[in-house]
Amino acid sequence: EVTIKANLIFANGSTQTAEFKGTFEKATSEAYAYADTLKKDNGEYTVDVADKGYTLNIKFAG
């Protein structure tokens, strides 16, 4: 089991951190699915992958 950390960075400057656990593939998939649910209210997003994929910096356009 691994932990994927998602740093969520919103257009208004606020930030939030979420963690997803499971296999690497499952946790990564859940992180992207979570970002997709936030897209409606926060706009499109870009992802900067860090720490060999264990950290995702997800920035929303607003």
Rank of each mutant, 00 (worst) to 15 (best):
F20L: 02
D41K: 12
T46R: 09
K52E: 14
Q16T: 14
L38G: 02
A61Q: 12
V47D: 02
E25H: 05
Q16E: 07
G43I: 03
F20V: 02
L56E: 00
T17C: 05
A35H: 00
K39I: 09
E25W: 04
N57P: 00
T37F: 09
Y32P: 00
E1K: 04
Y34W: 08
V47T: 10
G22T: 02
V47G: 02
K40R: 09
A35D: 00
N42A: 14
I9N: 10
F20K: 01
E25I: 06
K26R: 05
K39T: 08
A11M: 10
V2A: 07
A27F: 00
T17N: 11
Y34P: 00
G62Q: 09
S29C: 05
K21C: 05
D48L: 11
T17M: 12
N7R: 12
G62P: 12
E19L: 12
A35N: 01
A35T: 03
G43F: 03
E1D: 09
T46G: 06
Y45E: 00
E30W: 06
K40C: 06
N7C: 05
D48M: 11
A18T: 10
A6V: 10
I4M: 03
F24I: 10
A6K: 00
G43D: 03
D48A: 11
D51V: 02
F24V: 10
A18C: 05
V47H: 03
G53E: 03
A11H: 15
I9E: 08
D36K: 04
T23M: 09
T15V: 10
G43W: 03
E25C: 06
V2C: 04
S14M: 14
A35Y: 02
I58M: 10
A50P: 04
T37S: 08
T17Y: 15
F20E: 00
E25K: 05
T28D: 02
N12G: 08
T37Q: 13
L8I: 15
N42K: 10
A50S: 14
I58Q: 00
G43R: 02
S14C: 05
A18Y: 14
N12V: 05
N7L: 15
G62Y: 09
D51F: 03
E30H: 10
V47S: 06
N12T: 11
Y54A: 07
T23G: 07
A6T: 09
E1Y: 06
A50W: 10
T17A: 10
V47C: 04
S29G: 11
F20W: 06
K52D: 11
T28A: 07
S29N: 14
I4P: 00
A6P: 00
Y45N: 01
F24Q: 07
